[in-house]
Write a protein that binds this DNA or RNA. Structure first.
Lengths: 222, 222
DNA sequence: GTATCGGATATTGGATCCAATATTCAATAT
DNA sequence: ATATTGAATATTGGATCCAATATCCGATAC
């Protein structure tokens, strides 16, 4: 029997995955602008490591489509054209609606409470840049009930690619107010066990964001 | 004006991406068994490089979910549980049906001819292990007409994860014959411009393969 | 005979060093 | 004045070397 609590320091994250997580977050939140070059040397210095783990992190980001690398030129934050962004919204609408459809029958009271708490924090949030996190948390809480890990992973990746634009759009005009209203409607459908309605509302919610983004920004990038 | 043909040797693939492509192919085709350890040193020797580009290739594979890495233990080919495989089939059915629905109205005669040629090669193929390639080529040819690159990428990734099991199942019993029949039906719907029917047939085609796999193999791995 | 401990070996993660090439900018020819 | 050439610099990709740790196997205690 174990008499001491083990701490798994051996399983602690590698330098590369720490750097990856930090860069990913910076890109997803929009702190790094589209096209911004990511210098290996500079990043290595800021993390007090060599360039090796930095390169590993950059290859991970490239696999996720968050950066583009060119030989002898380096990595830059990968921006999306309007067509690409639109396609990703369409994809999300398709997959998230289906996940929602399958999640509703499995939602426990606890899941619904957690989601409700998310919305309350969303309404009370003072920092606009925090909306994005709460938005994701709300949706993920509901989706997780589906017990479809592969779907969740794919959704997360798609979300990463467009989150910056979504966040920028959320603070504009009536973005916040509409999101709040639509979230309430989705949660209501979930609470009543109406899977089809929840799925339809989810798709509308995402496609509405797509159209709103297309209006506000003529072209997102390059 | 350019008087000489330029060859872009500078843009030639890096060692890491060559190794990645080779390992990916080996895993997807099932030449490397589930759980098989991938030793950096060994791979490096067989490609006449150092371990650095090998590690880069392994991180790419890990991002794709094709290998699992553990610190100080190394990378192994990532097998799928029955539940995971089933989920990926469901995902494919959802996404590929939608892509097909949107592709049909855009299919030119050339696309249809290319797909038809695929099927003929499929029927005439002598090497059973070549079926898998032709199967993918057939579907991809049709999907590409949709002009939805993000969707295609996601589908490709999902396909990579289950292709081994699919190939193994294809050569069993009536797998080949049924695939041939279903492909013809799909192509027929496409040729007649019946998008909804093509989409429905595509979903059935994939879910049928899912069920067939579930029958033939009690558990896929681990 | 069996279980536990300790060192040898194997293997990975990271640091440092070297090679290759893109970019920049000054010098020069037209 | 402008376009071209060539050297200096910056930056990446890969090789070699070092540190950390998991695994294996023999020695030892009971």
């Amino acid at each position: 029997m174990a008499k001491f609590q083990t701490v798994d320091i051996g399983r602690s994250a590698s330098a590369a995955s720490i750097i990856f997580a930090a860069l990913r977050r910076a890109i997803v939140e929009g702190d790094l602008a589209d096209g911004e070059p990511l210098r290996q040397d500079e990043i290595a210095r800021s993390f007090n490591t060599s360039r090796i783990p930095v390169r590993e992190a950059l290859t991970m980001l490239e696999q996720q489509g968050l950066v583009k690398t060119e030989r002898y030129k380096g990595a830059v934050v990968a921006g999306l054209s309007m067509a690409e962004a639109t396609e990703i919204f369409d994809f999300r609408a398709l997959v998230e609606a289906e996940v929602m459809r399958r999640a509703v029958p499995k939602m426990t009271a606890e899941v619904l409470d957690t989601a409700r708490a998310c919305l309350e924090r969303f309404a009370a949030a003072s920092d606009p840049m925090h909306y994005g996190d709460l938005n994701r948390e709300f949706h993920e809480t509901l989706y997780r009930a589906s017990a479809l890990p592969y779907h969740l992973g794919v959704i997360e990746n798609a979300m990463d690619r467009i989150d910056r634009y979504l966040r920028a759009q959320l603070v504009l005009s009536d973005g916040m107010e509409r999101a709040r209203r639509e979230h309430l409607a989705i949660l209501d459908a979930c609470a009543k066990g109406e899977a089809e309605r929840a799925a339809a509302l989810t798709a509308e919610h995402i496609l509405g964001a797509r159209d709103s983004l297309a209006e506000h920004m003529g072209s997102v990038s390059r």
